[in-house]
């Protein structure tokens, strides 16, 4: 029963990720796509947690934190590119 619930939630996460992929493909503006990619990252974290419960291992718990950090930095980099046109500035107070 517990395994079935886990598999069901994995299926729901997969469907949700698929809908986000549709938003990434169709999204009329670039910020739509960035937000959808960020949410896909969050979904990936949830799916990693579910799989690590299913496989009865703690080896994937580092990956959860890692994905959170990487998706945060990636989203910030893209947001800065959209806002300022360059990702790493040479001198901000010029």
């Amino acid at each position: 029963m517990f395994t079935f619930i886990l598999q069901l939630s994995l299926g729901i996460m997969a469907v949700s990720t698929l809908l986000y992929v549709i938003r990434v493909i169709k999204g009329p503006t670039v910020p739509d796509r960035v937000v959808a990619l960020d949410a896909i990252g969050i979904n990936l974290i949830a799916m990693t947690a579910l799989v690590s419960i299913l496989l009865k291992t703690t080896a994937f718990l580092d990956i959860i934190l890692l994905l959170g950090i990487l998706s945060f930095i990636g989203t910030i980099a893209f947001a800065k590119f959209l806002e300022k046109g360059e990702i790493i500035e040479n001198d901000r107070n010029r």
Binding site: I73, I76, A77, K80, I87, I88, E89, N90, D91, R92
Partner: peptide
């Protein structure tokens, strides 16, 4: 992340 929030200098 520091480079993104601040600048290279």
């Amino acid at each position: 992340l520091l480079l993104l929030a601040f600048d290279l200098k």
